[in-house]
Design a protein around this nucleic acid. Structure first.
Lengths: 208, 208
DNA sequence: TTTAAGTTTAACTAAGTGGTTAAATCATGC
DNA sequence: GCATGATTTAACCACTTAGTTAAACTTAAA
């Protein structure tokens, strides 16, 4: 639909994403977006009539980028444990590259949850498929019985929260030592995978 | 230091907390706080000279209220697993009563992380004590070996994130069915405790 | 009764905000 | 060359915001 080269509209979108993500809808200033895009306010409104439209474009772009990762993995035909591992890997990798997305999404959805509805409809987000697969694995005795919703909540929480709470983690756990913080994030995928597997996989023979 | 009865200053603080927590520092309006307190803007500035001062008072109050729960539990002399269970119970209980605190804290600390420094110093938040206790339990073979930081991050994430992401959970998992959402939150404490114990406790004899 | 603090009213400021406009300029390809 | 759209400039509007001020009124205590 949109054929972009590398100019103006793209510059605006890039600048808007940067400013909106770090300042939020309310904290962002159109002037700042214009400055960061290297243009002026008039031209900004020439391309995107209003702040709200520009924000919606950015918000949809970020949601589209962050959410459907799971959907693809769920569609494959691998065993549930492998899928869970893939989801964890995919999310941590995504979040290491875009660590400010969780804070942004939480902030904006708490401010105005109504935007979620359209997006869920638009992208057809439906967790029932993965819940069903979890339930099957539970009934087969591969993993322990628990409500799939809670299992999913546990996994997603461990992946996302440390990024949403980045300032707290950074300061309290690492005294703002960025190298150490990065190392911590890099370890998360392996840690979470082992933690989840230890918690839910039923081992047939265990002599501890 | 402050001996409050039940009037004006308390009304202002109550109104400010309500408005700041739901709208955030930037979204909150002094007029709205005045209205909710049942007074006028002039009197609001008569008590708290500026929006920033009022906000800092509220922010400190909330942090003071939300953070030190753990500190007390850590000080007791119970075994580590019992302590972890108590921390989970305490947090979920707190969050069910004040579900908007996580979103508020995440939003404001991402906006301006500098406030964290003073508060950490003020309340002497130091996670090293609990980390040491975890390490001892690991060396004793009571729980599996892992970095205490990651263990703590896992537990706290599972407790807090579902509240921070309340709108998402509410809509995607429960189609905004508030009863079902409350039931979900009420189950969290037991679910997380079991999940953590299954993940880290080393059972001496296990015949599955 | 006097005094002082609490409180209201209502107008005001100063600064910012998103958004608009009109004119001039620049670039491009027809 | 000319037409068209992109871009700049700079002023401007309407509105909202935090914060101030001065005057009057209320309340309660001294």
């Amino acid at each position: 639909m949109e054929i972009k080269k590398d100019s103006t509209e793209e510059k605006i979108l890039g600048a808007a994403k940067s400013v909106f993500v770090s300042k939020g809808m309310e904290g962002a200033r159109m002037q700042e977006i214009a400055d960061e895009a290297g243009i002026n306010k008039a031209l900004l409104h020439y391309y995107f009539r209003s702040k709200e439209r520009l924000f919606e474009a950015i918000f949809a772009e970020i949601i589209k980028f962050a959410f459907p990762k799971v959907t693809r993995i769920v569609g494959s035909d691998e065993p549930i444990v492998a899928k869970i591992e893939q989801v964890i890997d995919a999310y941590i990798e995504l979040l290491i590259e875009h660590p400010f997305i969780p804070g942004f999404i939480i902030k904006e959805l708490n401010r105005d949850p109504s935007g979620l509805f359209k997006l869920v409809v638009k992208f057809g987000l439906n967790p029932q498929a993965i819940f069903d697969q979890m339930q099957i694995a539970m009934d087969r005795g591969e993993i322990i019985q628990m409500q799939p919703r809670h299992l999913a909540a546990n996994i997603i929480s461990m992946c996302i929260f440390p990024f949403a709470a980045r300032p707290i983690i950074s300061f309290i756990l690492f005294k703002d030592d960025q190298k150490a913080l990065e190392a911590f994030y890099a370890e998360r995928a392996e840690v979470i995978k082992k933690f989840v597997i230890d918690a839910i996989v039923i081992k047939k023979k265990e002599i501890e």
